[in-house]
């Protein structure tokens, strides 16, 4: 399946869990990390819960490298800006006007913990859940089929759109459109590329609308699915408990800060 997704196909216990269980688990970990007191809770949850889960799902290295790639630009930015531009504090060193502050660096490290928690949690979910099973689960959980249609179609058409944009870029270049040079030249190239992309794809709308209507998209009948999603009574119980846990963490988090 050539969809726009992070899914890593493996055989593992984590992969075979019901998607709803996994998404609730992710939300529970994020809620816990943000609600519980202590500056380093985020890091603690990542190292002692998310990493072992990733091992179980056999995506540990994958998760590590993706989280690293997504968080790095952010980390550099947050550390530089918070430490160098912190108002009053203890300087780490001073060279002329440059004097990064400990307090700022600590603040940056604390915010990074929250970020890494949110990142790795959701990335782990995306890596171990097939996008099509996610859509079926959403429908079964009562999400309107129109919303499920939007989500799953988006995941499928994004790669073809990225290719289309590059094709148009190449086509316009071969007709002499300048796409490199100073800012003015590059900005001028923008409109001749996006107008064909947008207008061309809007012409598809009619066709697609007719196609799904002729396949009974608007019929109110309950549909059946080709793919069965395995679920167990135990997981149903666990999901109730997790839901309660998320609620408890949110209430605790709010009360504790009042």
């Amino acid at each position: 399946m050539n969809a726009f997704s992070m899914y890593a196909a493996r055989e593992s216990g984590l992969h075979s869990l019901h998607p709803l269980t996994k998404i609730l688990m992710t939300l529970l970990l994020v809620a816990a990390g943000l609600a519980l007191p202590g500056n380093w809770t985020g890091y603690f949850i990542v190292v002692f819960i998310i990493f072992p889960l990733a091992f179980w799902g056999r995506v540990f290295l994958n998760l590590l490298s993706t989280t690293w790639k997504v968080s790095l630009p952010f980390a550099i930015s947050v550390i530089l800006i918070q430490s160098f531009f912190w108002g009053e504090g203890t300087p780490i060193f001073e060279i002329g006007v440059l004097s990064p502050k400990w307090e700022g660096a600590m603040f940056a490290a604390v915010s990074m913990g929250k970020i890494i928690l949110v990142m790795s949690g959701f990335l782990l979910f995306s890596m171990t859940t097939r996008p099509d099973t996610l859509m079926i689960t959403l429908k079964q959980a009562g999400v309107p089929s129109s919303i499920a249609y939007i989500i799953v179609t988006t995941l499928q058409i994004v790669p073809s759109f990225q290719r289309k944009a590059l094709t148009i870029l190449d086509a316009q270049r071969s007709r002499g459109l300048e796409t490199e040079g100073n800012l003015y030249v590059r900005a001028r190239a923008f409109i001749p590329i996006i107008l064909p992309l947008v207008l061309g794809s809007l012409m598809e709308v009619e066709e697609r609308a007719i196609a799904i209507e002729s396949r009974g998209f608007n019929s109110g009948k309950k549909e059946t699915s080709l793919i069965e999603i395995p679920d167990t009574p135990l997981q149903k119980v666990i999901r109730r408990v997790i839901l309660f846990g998320i609620f408890a963490f949110i209430v605790f988090g709010v009360l504790w800060r009042l």
Binding site: Q162, I194, L197, V198, S201, E204, V205, A209, I212
Partner: peptide
């Protein structure tokens, strides 16, 4: 409904 996924793909591609 058909337009919305296309629009999201346009967001990402542009």
């Amino acid at each position: 409904l058909v337009l919305i996924p296309i629009a999201i793909a346009i967001n990402i591609a542009i």
